[in-house]
Nucleic acid binder design. Structure first.
Lengths: 252, 252
DNA sequence: TAGTGGTCTAGACCACAGT
DNA sequence: CTGTGGTCTAGACCACTAT
């Protein structure tokens, strides 16, 4: 028949809409198997590519997930609540506890992999840290996993000269982490700025976070300032958007 | 030839990668026209559907935008900086200025459409506002546009009983907006909470924000509390993620 | 009108999962 | 094994844009 055939809206959209409605009414719950390509071809008398396209709509909206050789399944959404302000209270990281242990109340969020390096920073970060051109930064790359599933990548940038000789350049930064160590050398962070963006992930992020198609990432750039107003750390984070709700409390 | 043919990675991914590299090196700048389906078919000796798939990768990542009958073009990214804390300083909205006028420094962000209604709220919002079951809320739906392009939808929910008879139920809330009017009736908001999520847009959001494929939305739910700790307003916002950077400053 | 992207067909081979 | 989704082909008609 070529093009649209019967209705005025594309077949694949009609099929996608029908599937979405079935999910919304609870006919298919989180984790349930949806009709696959062959089912849709038979049920709607369309070609494989058309059935695929319908499924593609749900995938792009993050509603469904295709597992090769197994089928198409309804996605689940159970985010962690990340409190932007309280979690950085000095009382918490000042003595012992990691900044991250509060992230997932009762859940099992843990450090998955760490690497430390010294590199030449991108211009934007270099100028934030107030470093001279060509000055190296200490880079701490980390990945966090929730119940075994990776949910966040974090990369901290610090003046390499400033932190040389401290535990910040070690894999294990010790009790209280980076901020406690910075305090010990007279650069205790007291003020923070978090900048938030969102976009679709780059292939490398898709890979490192095992993201299914249709899941955006949230980017947080946190800059930590000392009492004097100097930026001592820039932490670039990449979050699986389906894993997080960010919360900020403030009294302007 | 069937399946993968030459290399070990799919043809469409190789083609997509090549296009992305060309964008990254600046060969194609923002707004430039990219090779279209026909160009890619000729250049790589592939079928139309394969060329389409390659372009689909760039669209899904938000890098390119297809305009029917015209071609495929490199997307632009020029976000507004939205300061979460300072923008709510009472000094700003206390006398006259709108909370929103600060959003876009020098840009032309303006209210695009407003509607006011009284409805029965969803359970989550009803309980946030501490209302009895079945109690109605005053709903203010607004859309904001930046240089004519819609970038945000906002829906405020307030206790209908509380705001009855005030300008909050009018299209024009008067100088200082909702928060100034709440102050006048003894419910001045002093504390705010913003919760942030991100996901792919629903079709209705895609439509109202004119979003190209591959653009996530950012959801902000702001709850405004009085000195007594009562929630007086819940504002649900839907932002075009490519139009915004959110900024939060705090001293924990 | 010529060219573009949007949609669609009816086949095909492959890698992978569980059935 | 069978069935699944992933990839690919070589055609086709349509609506839309720009000339």
């Amino acid at each position: 028949m070529g093009s649209q055939g019967g209705g005025r809206q594309p077949k694949y959209q009609r099929i996608a809409l029908e599937l979405k409605a079935a999910i919304e009414t609870g006919e298919y719950g989180p984790g349930d198997r949806l009709p696959g390509e062959n089912d849709l071809m038979a049920a709607h008398a369309v070609a494989r590519m058309t059935a695929r396209q319908a499924i593609g709509v749900l995938r792009a909206e993050g509603l469904a997930e295709a597992r090769k050789g197994a089928g198409v399944f309804v996605r689940e959404y159970r985010p962690i609540r990340r409190r932007g302000v309280q979690r950085l209270s000095a009382g918490l990281w000042g003595e012992g506890r990691s900044v991250w242990s509060m992230d997932a109340e009762g859940w099992d969020l843990k450090l998955d992999s760490v690497s430390v390096a010294e590199e030449s920073p991108p211009e934007a970060i270099r100028s934030l840290l107030g470093l001279a051109e060509g000055a190296p930064v200490c880079l701490r790359r980390r990945r966090y996993a929730l119940n075994g599933r990776p949910v966040m990548l974090a990369t901290s940038h610090l003046d390499a000269g400033l932190v040389a000789g401290t535990a910040i350049t070690e894999i294990d930064t010790g009790p209280g982490g980076i901020y406690a160590r910075l305090g010990e050398i007279g650069h205790r962070p007291v003020r923070f700025r978090e900048e938030i963006r969102s976009r679709m992930p780059a292939p490398l992020e898709t890979d490192r976070l095992s993201l299914p198609a249709g899941t955006p990432v949230v980017l947080i750039r946190r800059t930590a300032f000392t009492e004097e107003g100097t930026a001592v750390e820039v932490n670039d984070m990449v979050l699986d958007s389906s894993a997080y709700i960010l919360e900020y409390d403030f009294t302007p």
